[in-house]
Amino acid sequence: MNQDFVKLDRLDGTGTNFNRWKDKLMFFLTALKVAYVLNPNLPEIPPPKDGESDEVKKQREKRQEDEVICRGHILNTLSDTLYDLFTVVKSPREIWATLEREYASQKQGADEFLIKKYFEFKLDDSSSLMDQIHNLQVIVSKHKEYGVEISESMQVGAIIAKLPSSWNDYQKKLLHTSEILTISSVLKHLRIEEGARILHKKEFDSDPRVNMVHEKKF
Score class of each variant (00 low, 15 high):
K142F: 07
I198P: 00
I159S: 03
N2H: 14
D9H: 11
T77F: 14
S141M: 14
P208N: 09
D9V: 02
Y83M: 11
D124H: 13
H176C: 12
Q64K: 11
Q171I: 00
D4C: 15
G51L: 01
P208Q: 08
G109I: 09
V6C: 07
Q64T: 10
P43F: 11
K122E: 14
L114C: 11
S184P: 04
E55F: 05
R209V: 08
E203F: 02
S105M: 10
Y118M: 15
E145W: 08
R71T: 02
E152A: 12
Q64P: 00
Q155A: 12
S166G: 15
D50S: 05
S53K: 01
L123M: 05
R20F: 08
D124Q: 08
M154N: 13
A97M: 12
N41M: 15
D84L: 09
K22A: 04
S151K: 11
R197K: 12
K33N: 04
T87G: 05
K107D: 04
E145P: 14
H73I: 06
Q137E: 15
N211T: 01
V140S: 04
S184V: 08
L187T: 03
F28M: 11
W96S: 03
K24W: 05
T81P: 00
I192Q: 06
S128W: 03
L78N: 06
L75D: 09
P40Q: 13
Y170K: 06
I198V: 12
L8K: 05
T87L: 10
L85I: 11
K57R: 05
D131M: 01
L123T: 00
R10Q: 15
Q64D: 02
R93V: 07
L75A: 09
I160Q: 03
K33E: 08
A158Y: 02
R197A: 05
S185W: 07
R197D: 00
Y118P: 02
G147L: 08
F86M: 04
K33V: 00
V68D: 13
R63Y: 11
M26H: 13
L163A: 05
P46C: 09
T182V: 04
E179F: 13
T30H: 03
